[in-house]
Simulated assay, not measured.
Amino acid sequence: MPNHAPDLRLFLAGDLMCARGIDQILPHPGDPRLYEAYVKDARDYVQLAERRNGAFAQPVDFAYVWGAALELLRQRRPNVRLVNLECAVTHQGWPQPKGINYRMNPANLPVLDVAGIDCCVLANNHLLDWGEAGLADTLAHLDSHAIAHAGAGLARAEAEAPAILTLDRGRRLLVFAFATGDCGVPPGWAAGEQQPGVARLDDLSARSVERVARCIEAARQAGDRVLVSLHWGGNWGFAVSAQQQDFAHALIDVAGVDLLHGHSSHHIKGLEVYRERLIIYGCGDLLDDYEGIEGHADYRADLGLLYFADLAHDGRLQGLELVPTRQRQMSIQRATGADRRWLEDCLRRECAPFGCSLRPTSENSFALVWPPAT
């Protein structure tokens, strides 16, 4: 990491999917029945992963799936650890008629505790896979583990409210989370005045920017830093649309956002630093059970990044370390050799349109390089 002493260090990651195959290898596997068109038993995803990369002993402990990430977290000591939790945490509810339904056994929630996760963003296309009962159960279980959450609630005001993370010297980080329809969140999942659901944006218009800005204005106090986490776009495709870039810029210009944490794509996307604020257009997956699934090989969904962002006291980006990872045997490992080179080449290509590049570090990670502010 940079030599400076950051005012705020964040650990950010994309989709953490602890359901299906991941849930089955943990100490308390839930009901393996699935309601998918082709796969009817979650243990099949474990077998597919073993077929590709070899068998491993099960059940695993809660630390296993984090693999190399735990030591990296211990070394870097981020002030806040934030992930997009891409599943319901519940025994309740009924599978919604959407084809794929993710849930993990609440008894496996210590998988978040072992990594010290401070906050889960919940505005995504899988939180209501088990209906409103599953949503309510998820909120209750996260609360019981003292894990903050944002982006979903039993009514719109709760869904749009930030997770407030207290930092040292009385400072605060406000985490807001929203989702858009193009990532698969149906209109009926939107939280209403008395309706449980997620904080859903109808579009990326100026009206949506103003809506986010009003939420921030209602909660922000002097000295607060503001992060908006956004589940948007499709699962595959590196392109960042002009509309997405304009929306990201407007969140900074109009709403005063310090960092945009984007996710939904199963692979990494480009990075931008705009007015000295970090924009992550797509984090890629942190952990999933797709290891043995064929298709989309050009996107290398098994490869990812751990994002360690250092912010100054006024929200400016001071440094961003990107640690390359590979999922293997349902565990997060360091990416090396050809895998690391693929990530570096991909990042350089996707960041170049935004004027950003990479500098290899002595830790076998990458540091983002961006143009000076004008």
Rank of each mutant, 00 (worst) to 15 (best):
S265W: 00
A218C: 11
D258A: 14
W236P: 00
L320Y: 00
H263L: 06
H313S: 15
L305G: 05
E272F: 04
G237Q: 05
Q245G: 05
L251C: 11
A309Y: 02
A312T: 03
I293P: 05
S265P: 01
T325E: 05
V240G: 08
E272N: 09
G315R: 04
E217G: 14
H249M: 06
L278K: 07
V254Y: 11
V273P: 01
R225S: 13
L322W: 03
Y290Q: 10
G292P: 02
L303F: 00
L311Q: 01
A219H: 14
V240N: 11
E321V: 09
D302F: 02
T325F: 01
W236H: 10
A312H: 00
S265C: 15
R277A: 14
L286I: 07
V257L: 14
G284H: 04
G295Q: 04
A297L: 07
L305C: 05
G304I: 02
I252R: 06
G234T: 13
W232Y: 09
L305M: 12
L322D: 04
A213K: 14
F238M: 06
Y274R: 10
E276Q: 15
L251D: 08
G284V: 07
I252L: 11
H231V: 02
G319M: 04
L286H: 07
D310Q: 09
Y274M: 10
A242V: 05
L227K: 08
L317A: 01
R220L: 12
Q245S: 15
Y274T: 09
A248V: 11
Y281R: 03
L317N: 06
A309N: 08
A250N: 09
